[in-house]
Design a protein around this nucleic acid. Structure first.
Lengths: 160, 160
DNA sequence: TATACTCGGACACAATGAGTCCGAGTAGCG
DNA sequence: CGCTACTCGGACTCATTGTGTCCGAGTATA
């Protein structure tokens, strides 16, 4: 089980978008992170479909965060990029084979699935407890405040 | 991100193996669950490599649990079948691009990765808190005690 | 000793992720 | 007002991993 690598890109992009209130083109985000612009576009489109970022077309278009960074959780981003479905899928094995439990006895989920889903819930809860604003603050503390300021200037300017 | 379906099979097999102290062949486990025997063998081999079950060759061979069911956690099974690696992999995006943070400033992990790994730890902790014995008890409570007894008789007998 | 039954790893196929490309649409500029 | 240049959006192709299958090596039994 490996998470889509696009999640990492999307999270970093959200953090960067924190620094700019004007639309930032996908190409610029790609150059900033030195990744494939064509592929990053796909992740940004997923974020846009989920309503986390808003797309602006036209000459000075790009992407902007729709909500305040403090109200966007990591879970939102993960669900948008990696899909909302559960990682563990129960195929109802118990209803198959010579000792299959009858369907009318399956009112509650399979104990195996229940345990797996409980663990997933813990994971999601941990993701929901962290927001993009938290990440931005941490990055700020790690890289120094001047970093984000420089990035902001580079994003808004026409430099490439 | 979807978890390997083999995890579900492996978990159910571990629960079933709780009911038998004599080796159970993979073919029998496959028939019991009505799944592909050839593919189930792969999962059982993974469990054997991880030391969770012991393989006995020869005419009346099969698989047996190596430890007590109460000392085998769901995390053990998931790690054995689905791989021990982290689901989120950090590609150190921060060290790339025009605003790359210098390597000597990267003594601590990237804040993004830190948050994702913290969530994974919560997931693993929840998995480690549940044992095969717990699952067996829950299955017993759901399907009634007579179910496991019947399965045990069927496993040890030569019926097919 | 011969045999039948077991596991174990090596071999194909399918689905999903990774990456690329070009067309539709819109804001700015002459 | 029309043109241009720039943007996003979805459709397409390739690589990797999961899914499924097969046959050979090895051993307890009769």
């Amino acid at each position: 089980m490996k998470m889509s690598g696009g999640v990492e890109w999307a999270l970093h992009c959200c953090v960067v978008l924190t620094a700019s209130h004007t639309p930032v083109p996908a190409a610029k985000l790609a150059e900033l992170h030195d990744v494939s612009g064509s592929y990053l576009a796909k992740q940004l489109q997923a974020l846009a479909r989920a309503g986390l970022i808003h797309s602006v077309q036209g000459k000075s278009g790009g992407y902007v965060l729709t909500r305040a960074p403090a109200s966007i959780t990591l879970l939102d981003v993960v669900r948008a990029v990696d899909g909302p479905g559960p990682t563990f899928v129960c195929t109802e094995i118990r209803q198959r084979g010579p000792f299959a439990t009858p369907a009318d006895a399956c009112t509650t989920p399979c104990p195996v699935a229940r345990a797996m889903w409980a663990a997933e819930d813990a994971w999601r809860q941990a993701l929901a407890a962290v927001t993009i604003a938290d990440l931005a603050r941490d990055v700020d503390a790690n890289s120094g405040p001047e970093a984000l300021v420089g990035i902001q200037a580079w994003l808004t300017s026409g430099a490439g």
